[in-house]
Every structure is written in C-alpha cells, then in structure tokens.
C-alpha cells in the first residue's frame, strides 16, 4: 500500500516549488508552520484529488491540517476503493 505521506509531499512540491517538502515534518501545521496559504492548500488538495481520486470536502478541512493527517485521510478514503497506488 502506498504511503500517502509521499503523495502529499509530492503535491506540495508541485504547488509550492520554493518549499522543500522534506523539511516539513509529518505533524507540522501546513498553514502556520509550513507557510502554505489558502491558495496553496487548495492546490495541494486538487493535486491529491487528481492523483488519488480523493476529494476532501471543505467541511473536512479542519481534519487535514498536517501531512500525517492528510495522508491518513487519503488512506481512509481509498481503503475500499481500487486505488492502492
């Protein structure tokens, strides 16, 4: 099974090329610690939707504020699906 933390890091690298995603810890807050603004965050989610098919509704944004949390969210929403990377 794919480790979706790398999926998330790849999405960040694509959206914000000036940030090295390896410098963001799994439990750092995107917003305050990593410096992603709302446009960057939206684009990260768009890249993830494209890659994994997982669409995070706005109401779930508070659950996905770190790389680890977003990766778990993707895991949880692809478990029954065919996508295993």
């Amino acid at each position: 099974m794919t480790d979706h933390r790398s999926t998330v890091r790849a999405a960040i690298a694509r959206v914000a090329p000036e940030i090295d995603p390896d410098t963001i810890a799994d439990d750092e807050q995107f917003r305050d610690d990593a410096g992603l603004d709302s446009m960057d965050f939206l684009n990260v989610l768009a890249a993830i939707a494209e890659r994994t098919g997982v669409e995070v509704p706005e109401s779930d944004y508070p659950q996905v504020t770190t790389i680890a949390a977003l990766a778990s969210y993707i895991d949880a929403h692809t478990e029954q699906g065919a996508d295993t990377g």
């Binding site: 709302s38 939206l42 989610l45 669409e55």
Partner: peptide, 17 residues
Amino acid sequence: LRSLNEQRSVADRILPA
C-alpha cells in the same frame, strides 16, 4: 460560498479571496 463549494470538486472551488 460554502454551499456553492460543497457542490464542487476541489479544482473548481472558489476562495474567499
């Protein structure tokens, strides 16, 4: 805005900005 974005995929959502 929220009810509009609820019906939309991530790529088509609109930010408050």
